[in-house]
Nucleic acid binder design. Sequence first.
DNA 1: AGTATGACGTTTT
DNA 2: AAAAACGCCATAC
Length: 119
Amino acid sequence: MPPWPRSTKTAADPFCASVREWIALIPVGKVATYGQIAHLAGKPWGARQVSWILHSQSVKYQLPWQRVIGAKGRISLPPGNGFVEQRRLLRHEGVKVDDRGRIDLKIYRWSTEGEFPAR
DNA sequence: AGTATGACGTTTT
DNA sequence: AAAAACGCCATAC
């Protein structure tokens, strides 16, 4: 049983707001994973919700949605226009992405170590 | 209310 | 290494 607190979702809720803030902080040329953002926002198990927030609110809040990828260093979109667009945007920012959408997290993962000591 | 789906992640084959 | 099986949680229908 998860000892974790259960919380809400809507656009106004703290978790959503926190997710948006963290995503907005990802520097150009770096990437973060869904799970990483969920963790930073206080919900370690909320990776799927992060993807939902990106899908539904990235335009409205002008989020750098292209900088959020899967935990294995892979673009998580199904093959298609979105996938190609994300790959293009990341390459344009200086991130090396191979044709299958793989990114070397050792190099490009955004690390908050030292910058945000409180988490 | 119950089921299927998803821009996920971890564990097991 | 790669794919499938699970677990998770919010949405869409």
